[in-house]
Design a binder for these strands. Structure first.
Lengths: 344, 344
DNA sequence: ACAAATTATGGAAGCGATTCCAAGGTAATA
DNA sequence: TATTACCTTGGAATCGCTTCCATAATTTGT
């Protein structure tokens, strides 16, 4: 089929070793020979065979990223951070996008084939325990993003603290009847953010927890969707007004969009009637004036990839855990409660 | 390092050929031998070496997708379509996300290495002419998405017709002073959509083209951004009211969001003061009531990938060109012009 | 019961690179 | 001039698989 280094060697009257050295910029080749071989390679339209190089070098110059197609924004932003870094290093990216939870197992299995890639980034996925063992045993370089595992490098935001800060902010505005809208119960962000929320409302006697609301439908995904947010808000609005929360901490921007929609449909205004603070700070949040907790997503991607390369070079590094504190971005969806409900 | 089929062969007292056949489900192995080999492989925690398989099989079971990080939505949606298809076929996806135009050349170059991947999807990128030649010469399977090239399979939407339909819709509502907001001049969608727009406004004598507005700043990307849309709208709003358009065809949803923002800031309402129709129908368009031209993005991804597999099986297929007609989705951002400007 | 066809198996020869080792040639040192 | 050191070079061995070919063992047909 294609031109091989043997063809070049023959044509250029040198050995294959020399051709290989020229192609890899090895120093011990005379300038003369180098130029000649290069000229021949060019003339013959030589293109190296990546598979053969991978086998011989025992390196794939490829890394794998596995992540769910959660919100578009998170996905793209993280990917952008990763890819910028890889481009500089001349590495390729194998992407396993998870549309359905059952795909995770398959993908993790594939990633275990030797020579498949040199390392892996696992984002927003809880690593199954048996795979924890497998990766540890193989000493395969992996980095967790947006999740914590003590055995592996982990880069994640402090969900508990962030949720706590968001709720505290609502309290500081004078709200005393606060609720939370969140994703499916079994997801990690839901659990951690709920915890932060509960601790904040529990701290002050005059503040009531008006309830934590989960998506009703058992959806295939994590429940962090516009529609879920909309449905949940509708449910909340069926409450009699004197028991209805005046402020809601929404666990994701995308749900907050849905919630705002439901408010608008019900003829209620935000923040005049109900205040919202959410979590993520996706691109459109700024645009629609959502007050939210900002996560440094792109930064997470870049730093995690950087660490992956460090680990590929030095497999024996101790696990590193870096936590990032989300930052409150104040915009227009949260304000004081309606005067009739104002602080005692 | 790892366990090879030779290790298994020795341990199981069989030849390597037999081990390979077992692992590949080749029919001519006795059930007995098969079970035994499988048991040994399992026991030794054998994991095949992907690089060696690629080299020996002369197949990488990988395809490459190269596409710009344009709007998040387009990107993710297309990728989702591609990946769903690949998952079924047990193929891997190598992703080249383009953040900056200069990366394109590098990526195309890499894709040309033999054994790198078995085929490629090129989305929303105009193929440089010299690469057209290279791919043709190599007979490397490539499929174009969202772009047309007569030499290759192309899956694309009819921009001209779509823009024409959008503009006609505004005209049908009674508008006579219409403008267009679009991306950078040199991009294909801008050119094609402008053409459709111009032909529509040119068809009727009473309708005036109030101008095609491009992004002011020379941005590194294509100009289809929220900010660009916002800036352009601000410029338009500086026009004296009797020369200001009553309707605008915006070449992308994302710019329309920016334009709506500018309108709101200026205290104008949509559609009461100015009507908008845009293009793309990204996820949030439905949510914010944007009237727009819908592109079947995911479908494009699935069909293109399907075709890529057909081409990998039969490299000699004639180029196939499939055009998709965008569909007008009527929501709330377009209505009749203010009464004082209503039709003569 | 014997030839022919079928089924299982072992193992050598690839796939196309990298890399190490031996060796030839040249220059430097004494 | 002899010895040592260094720079280039050729080519065999290797990476870990697949696959083809030859052969042995078994089954089928007559």
């Amino acid at each position: 089929m294609g031109v091989t280094i043997y063809d070049i060697a023959k044509e250029a009257n040198v050995g294959v070793g020399t051709v290989s050295r020229v192609l890899n910029n090895h120093p011990s080749v005379s300038a003369e020979t180098r130029d000649h071989v290069l000229a021949v390679a060019q003339k013959m339209d030589y293109r190296p065979n990546a598979s053969a190089q991978r086998l011989a070098r025992r390196k794939s110059r490829t890394i794998t990223a596995i992540m769910p197609y959660i919100t578009n924004y998170f996905f793209v932003e993280l990917l952008g951070g990763i890819q910028d870094f890889l481009f500089e290093r001349d590495y390729d990216l194998l992407l396993y996008g998870v549309n359905h939870p059952k795909q995770i197992e398959t993908y993790l299995q594939r990633s275990l084939r030797a020579g498949h890639s040199d390392g892996m980034l696992i984002a927003s996925i809880d690593l199954p325990p048996d795979y924890t063992q497998k990766y540890l045993k193989n000493n395969f370089p992996i980095i967790l993003v947006d999740r914590f595992n003590e055995n592996f490098d982990s880069f994640f935001v402090q969900n508990v603290e962030g949720a706590h800060a968001a709720t505290r902010y609502l309290i500081s505005l004078g709200h005393t009847r606060i609720a939370m809208i969140t994703g499916n119960k079994e997801t990690t962000p839901t659990q951690e953010r709920s915890q932060g929320y509960l601790s904040a409302v529990g701290e002050i006697d005059t503040v009531h927890n008006a309830g934590i609301f989960y998506p009703v439908l058992e959806s295939t995904n994590d429940g962090f969707s516009k529609d879920a947010g909309c449905e949940i808000m509708k449910t909340i609005l069926t409450l009699p007004e004197d028991r209805r929360p005046t402020a809601i901490f929404v666990a994701s921007d995308i749900q907050a969009f849905g919630a705002m929609h439901a408010l608008k449909e019900a003829g209620l205004r935000c923040p005049e009637d109900i205040s919202l603070v959410s979590f993520d700070d996706i691109e459109l949040a700024s645009y629609y004036g959502l007050s939210t907790m900002r996560q440094p997503i792109r930064k997470l991607g870049v730093l995690a990839t950087e660490r992956l390369f460090a680990r590929m070079d030095h497999p024996k590094l101790e696990p590193l855990h870096r936590r990032f504190t989300p930052e409150l971005v104040i915009r227009q969806t949260a304000g004081p409660p309606p005067s009739r409900y104002r602080n005692v």
